[in-house]
């Protein structure tokens, strides 16, 4: 029990630090891609910017609109934060020699747990937007809910292909099944679907209709300020990190080294893969404009879902034949 607590504390620290610097590097990378230096005033190369941002968020006045539902308004950020962190209970970061994973808990139904938690995560957005008692957050919340439900479907279907190939729902098991071939090769279509839906699930550009600032001011968190806003903020980045971890575990071989480069520890490979996926996120944001809402829904239901189903059927057939 104590070991679990210590593990959790360390993991929380790691995830929070990663979040902070992910945010900084996103701003930096966006800056570079847009011919700007990015934040560089706080500390050398702006490395202390996350601390400054944190201080700002903590010190900012916390406002609750008069028309807001006080209970739900306060509850929503914590649902977001809680579900964002809960996922790390099962995420393995590496494996010992005996095959036991570096994770807080090794759950057999890992991938199902993941889906369960992420389906709860929508509540943060929808309740927060609804409880703000103002029209922009409500619109953002309704949009976000519809978007996340729609894309969750395709995302789950993209998982199923991997599950069929690995024959297990345990994340450690899936990674171990990729020792020879990473699943993004046999499951190329599934991987592409996963990448797209992952971006949509985390409400990032080009799928950030939840907080489309040109139309909805700030979307579901328009009325939030201070640490409550910060909670949504942290949740978004932690979700990004989660999604990157999942991509790494399910499709990119987790801590498996490519080309037999096993002298580099597996955890480093894992971090590298997660980092690459995170970079891809930021790269996308710097490149692509936002989807139109009707196009988003059309794309989700009429393009992604059929392709995902097709992929599933094809994989099933392939597994059945072998």
């Amino acid at each position: 029990m104590l070991i679990v607590l210590v593990k959790s504390a360390i993991l929380l620290l790691v995830v929070l630090t990663t979040f902070a610097y992910a945010m900084l590097f996103e701003r930096k990378i966006m800056g570079w891609m847009q011919l700007r230096p990015g934040p560089n005033r706080v500390g050398p190369w702006g490395l202390l910017q996350p601390a400054a941002d944190a201080a700002k968020l903590i010190l900012k006045e916390d406002l609750t609109p008069k028309t807001a539902d006080p209970l739900i308004y306060r509850l929503a950020p914590f649902i977001s934060l809680l579900t964002a962190f809960a996922v790390y209970a099962i995420v393995p970061f590496g494996a010992n020699g005996d095959g036991s994973p570096w994770a807080i808990g090794d759950v057999n139904a890992g991938i199902l747990f993941l889906m369960a938690i992420s389906s709860i995560g929508v509540y943060g957005i929808s309740l927060g937007g609804w409880a703000s008692g103002s029209k922009f957050p409500l619109l953002g919340a309704v949009r976000g809910t519809a978007q996340m439900i729609s894309y969750e479907l395709s995302m789950s279907l993209s998982f199923v292909g991997v599950l069929m190939l690995a024959g297990t729902t345990s994340l450690t098991g899936i990674v171990n099944a990729q020792e020879r071939v990473w699943f993004f090769i046999p499951q190329a279509l599934g991987f592409i679907i996963y990448v797209i839906t992952a971006v949509a699930e985390t409400n990032r550009t080009p799928f950030d209709l939840v907080e489309a600032e040109t139309e909805l001011v700030g979307g579901f968190h328009t009325e939030y300020s201070g640490l409550r806003f910060g909670s949504f903020f942290i949740a978004e980045y932690v979700n990004m990190l989660t999604v990157s971890c999942i991509a790494s575990l399910l499709f990119l071989g987790g801590w498996n080294a490519p080309f037999g480069l096993t002298m580099i520890p597996g955890i480093l490979w894992f971090v590298l893969k997660v980092g690459a996926f995170m970079f891809f996120y930021m790269w996308l944001r710097a490149t692509l404009p936002r989807f139109r809402y009707d196009r988003l829904m059309t794309f989700g239901w009429k393009v992604l879902l059929p392709i995902a189903t097709l992929n599933l059927v094809a994989t099933a057939a392939w597994v059945a034949l072998h």
Binding site: M115, I120, V122, Y123, S126, G129, W130, T145, A146, I149
Partner: peptide, 12 residues
């Protein structure tokens, strides 16, 4: 994730 979410949706 699905049924209850639907309720939230309809309430909104």
């Amino acid at each position: 994730g699905a049924i209850l979410m639907l309720f939230v949706f309809v309430i909104a």
